[in-house]
Nucleic acid binder design. Structure first.
Lengths: 213, 213
DNA sequence: TCGACCTTCGGCAGAATTGCCGACTGTCAG
DNA sequence: CTGACAGTCGGCAATTCTGCCGAAGGTCGA
């Protein structure tokens, strides 16, 4: 027998169990690929990835809890860190930039086909940046539309920035609502919107991003 | 009758109901003083003080919820803001500096005697900075011991600073404990100590102070 | 006019935080 | 050796936050 060349090791992060197993199947059936892990959340994956040390990670961008963008940020801090291919739906234009900025290597549109997936895996493994043509088009379109490298905080509405100001001073929802003169519920809603826009999941994270860290 | 000269208006912030009423009694019996409010917490006081607009505030330094130091910080942002006399026990050396830095005008040691209290009130009203001799001695002593104007964050132990680092990145207790390799409980304890040293009551507040706002 | 936001408000459940209590070990200075 | 800290760990209760749902009125531009 010939010596088998080292396969590309792959980890999968996808919350939908059906799609996850489907992806795993595609990878497993490829001769020179090996799936070393499949996770339903960013948190689980971040815990296991350092041990598994895969070459490539396939990551859904919409994850419960920590989202894909944040997961990319943390994963690229690993040494060495895997190449990351995001799985996304066509609407997620702004996620694309952030993931790219965070260190992702490529994108695939869902639903993803086996040949495309495997081609993308080999592409990133060879140093490429695979994107489906529709994603690539969206990327250049958006780059044309003056979206170079602006601060996420700037995308917050005036009211949201005002609320974030209070958060940064350490005010609670209740205190903030009293200061501004709106209901607790409204503060709650604004903060939800802030979290979504900044892609964070806690006040401390929002404040850190706001104060420019 | 002669025209009565405008009395010194006084507000009291003291969580112990007995002491609070005792203070109120002392003030009420003074001919040229008038107690316009007495509160059990910083939060209540901060809500009412802008309306009452007292000349002098007597504030306990140990309050439930928001502590006296933070309350001073917020109160001096009012326009115009009252002169503030802190009521403190002899151990609170570090609180003294912070309250002074925050804008308090004077100190009284508990238990406080009527004559001293009224003298202090008139003193601050006249632009003075009343302190009992024992407090004044403590102040100069501590100033001698190289405590000029250092950052509160510097007083945190190395471990505490490390933990605060994770807080600033938005990590939860659980995530932090996993990153460092200690238990959730220990992270919890460290954070409690951090809050006490920084005189804050939430992560966002701690992060804001840490990032220098 | 229609859609896309912004702003406002509410409920509910699960998760996380915070405060306060206790304990034990080790180190280091006085 | 004693006392003061730093660091570790645990439990418990109350509060707060977070996520997800729904709704409604306003503005503004296509």
């Amino acid at each position: 027998m010939a010596v088998k060349q080292t396969p590309i090791t792959i980890a999968i992060i996808e919350d939908d169990a059906g799609l996850r197993e489907s992806l795993r199947g595609i990878v497993q059936r490829a001769p020179d690929c090996r799936c070393v892990g499949a996770f339903g959340s960013a948190e689980e994956a971040l815990q296991a990835i350092p041990e598994l040390n895969p070459t490539v990670v396939l990551m859904d961008i919409n994850l419960p809890g920590m989202d894909g963008v944040e997961c990319v940020r943390r994963m690229v801090e690993l040494e060495p860190h895997p190449q990351i291919i995001m799985l996304t739906v066509h609407e997620d234009t702004d996620f694309i930039f952030e993931s790219l900025a965070a260190g992702a290597s490529g994108y695939l549109l869902k639903p993803v086909r086996a040949v495309e997936l495997l081609a993308a895996v080999k592409n990133v493994h060879a140093g490429g940046a695979p994107m489906t043509s529709s994603i690539a088009r969206k990327v250049v379109q958006s780059f044309k539309q003056a979206k170079p490298s602006q601060n996420e905080v700037d995308e917050l509405s005036p009211r949201e920035q005002e609320i974030l100001d209070y958060l940064a001073k350490g005010y609670s929802y209740k205190e903030t609502s009293e200061q501004i003169g709106i209901s607790y519920s409204t503060v709650h809603t604004h903060i939800e919107h802030i979290y979504h826009k900044l892609h964070v999941r806690s006040r401390a994270q929002a404040v850190a991003k706001y104060l420019g860290v």
